[in-house]
Each structure stands twice: as structure tokens, then as C-alpha cells.
Design a protein around this nucleic acid. Structure first.
Lengths: 163, 163
DNA sequence: TAAAGATGTATGATATATCATTGAAGTTGC
DNA sequence: GCAACTTCAATGATATATCATACATCTTTA
């Protein structure tokens, strides 16, 4: 039974939460995705992070963050200016529009959390948090190296893969 | 603090689990994604579902499932034959290759779960499950209808969106 | 300081996610 | 038996996820 598998329940809960959260943001007439919102928040709080730093904090991939930032620059939520001491980077700032958007989203986000957690006590969350953290750290360590020395990773993507 | 928000922990845990799970499947030399695996399992157990049915069971979108099925037909994990009594549909079957793949994946999946849940008791899971279900059902109900009668959804995607 | 190495960003390729729409094919109501 | 409705699958558009690579730019080291 799928429902007995905890990862299925986890996935289901977080997906539905994201769906509800985005729907309520949309309904409020605010043009931002929840993922973008998270990145914007991080940039607001620390304006001298690399994309890799940001990615780590929001638990996303550097490539994803790069694309999100590029979209947010295009949509005007972010502004960039070159960093004098490092030619590879830009300093990212939340724009005026970005600030207004963050303000507008804030109450929606709080309300979303409240709705999602209705009927759960602080004690419930206190129980759940360390369990989730434990799963996380287990999985962090759990990509065990194979006994075989050399792995043919390329073959995995070949369409002629034997199985 | 992001870490105090339960949804962040949830997201982090499930993401890392998926990452580990896929890495271990890759490492075993098996050419399937965990999402495809889930769909394949459902089709194996019920060979007369519509894509919408399948989507519901794996908690995905019909459009996603349609694309996954199309990929799995291409890669040979699935086979399709037209259904005589309904010209819109095909009967989907797990192919020989699909069966072999499922067999190969099974032990990896079990091992992944074991690794991920190390240090968690059955009691822990029994506590967590209903909480997750509660979050899910809260969120299912939580996309509250707006008081305003008409919503201009199109405007949300416009680049000229005022904020 | 030149070469080697590390870091930061961008991007290609592919898979999934979501919403919306289309068009074909069933079903219902009359 | 036809019109209206519903269902099913496919697909366009856009966003995210992941891996890999490319390229520029720093940093170290010999």
C-alpha cells in the first residue's frame, strides 16, 4: 500500500502545501512563485551571497538558482550591479518592486502556514522536526559508494541501455 | 530562521531522499527515474487505469503522467495496445524489460528506505503519518475561494504585472 | 609570475510540474 | 439520433530539478 510508505505521505503533504500556497499567492494577485519568493527572501537578508550560497540555503541546485535569478532580473524583482572585486559576480539586491512584492506576500505566507498546520500543536511540530532532520542526514550519508572502482555513468543515459 | 519552518524541513528531507534514491538506482546501473518507477508500479498492479487515475495514485498531474508514459513507451519499459471499447485510450502493460527493471530496482528501493529511516522507530512513523495526512487535508481544503466574484488570472502571467 | 587549481556563473540536455487548451471520443438527455 | 456535456490524452508555455560542461575569473603554488 502506497499510503503506508512514509515518503509517499511526505511527498503528498509537501506537494499539496506548495499547490495551496501558490494558489493563494496567485489569487492575491501577486506575481511570484513560492520558489522565487524563497530566493528573494534570502537575498534580502544577505546581499553578498554567491549563487551557490543561495542555492545551499534554499536547498536547491546552483543551476536552478541561476535560472531563477535570471527570471527575477527579467521580471524586475531583483536588480544587479557588477561587483568591483570579483568580475565573475554581480551584487544582487531586491528591487523596489521586489520589496513591495515581499510585503504583499508576507501575510499570504503566514496565512498559508496557519491553514496548513491547523490542528497540529507546537508539540507535534517539535516531534516531527528532528525526525525529518534525521531522515535528511541519513539520506545525506546514504548515497553509499559502490565497491566497484569505476562506474560507467554515461551508459545510464544511453537509449540502448541493456535494461 | 528557515530551519524552524516545518515545511522547509519537510522539503529538505524529501528532496534529499529523492536525491539519494536516484543516485543509488543510477549506481546500480538501472535506467529508470524514481518517478517513472512509481508509475510503472501502479501500471503493473492495475492495467486498466486512465492516465488521470494513474496521476491521482502517484499524486502527480495528468500532464506529467502523459509525458512520463510517452517516455517510458519510447524507452521500452511500457507497451501499449489500443483499447477496443474506447478509442481515446490505450491499454498499458509493463513490458518484459519493464518487469526486469522493476525486479532490479526492488532491492535498491528497500535498501534506500532502510537507510533513510535508520534510527527512526515504527512508533516515530506512526506519529508522523497522521500529522502529514492532516497537513495534506488542511491544504486540500485551504485554497479558499475569494470573496471577489471574478478573478483576472491571465494578468498574473503578464510581464507588466504592477507588482 | 606563470601554470595549476579552485570558484562563480551560465547554459545544454533531459525530466518533471503546472495550468491551460485542443481535439477526439464517449455519454446523456431530450 | 443529435446536441450538449463529459472524459481522455496530447501538447504548448513556462518554471523548476539535475547533471554535466564551458568559460571566465580568482587564488595558490612552485
Amino acid at each position: 500500500m502506497l499510503s503506508s510508505i512514509i515518503f509517499y505521505s511526505l511527498d503528498k503533504a509537501i506537494r499539496q502545501y506548495r499547490k495551496m500556497a501558490q494558489a493563494n499567492i496567485d489569487r492575491a494577485g501577486i506575481a511570484i512563485t513560492i520558489d522565487q519568493w524563497l530566493v528573494l527572501r534570502v537575498i534580502q537578508e544577505h546581499d553578498d551571497l554567491t549563487q551557490t550560497d543561495i542555492a545551499e540555503r534554499v536547498f536547491k541546485d546552483q543551476a536552478s538558482v541561476a535560472r531563477m535569478i535570471s527570471l527575477m532580473l527579467k521580471s524586475g524583482l531583483l536588480a544587479a550591479e557588477p561587483l568591483p572585486h570579483d568580475g565573475r559576480r554581480n551584487r544582487l539586491r531586491v528591487s523596489e518592486k521586489g520589496l513591495r512584492t515581499l510585503d504583499a506576500v508576507q501575510p499570504v505566507v503566514l496565512s498559508n502556514r496557519q491553514v496548513a498546520l491547523e490542528g497540529l500543536s507546537e508539540a507535534d511540530l517539535a516531534v516531527m522536526r528532528p525526525l525529518l532532520e534525521r531522515i535528511y542526514s541519513n539520506c545525506l550519508a546514504g548515497a553509499e559508494p559502490t565497491p566497484e572502482p569505476i562506474q560507467n555513468r554515461t551508459a545510464l543515459n544511453a537509449t540502448t541501455q541493456p535494461q
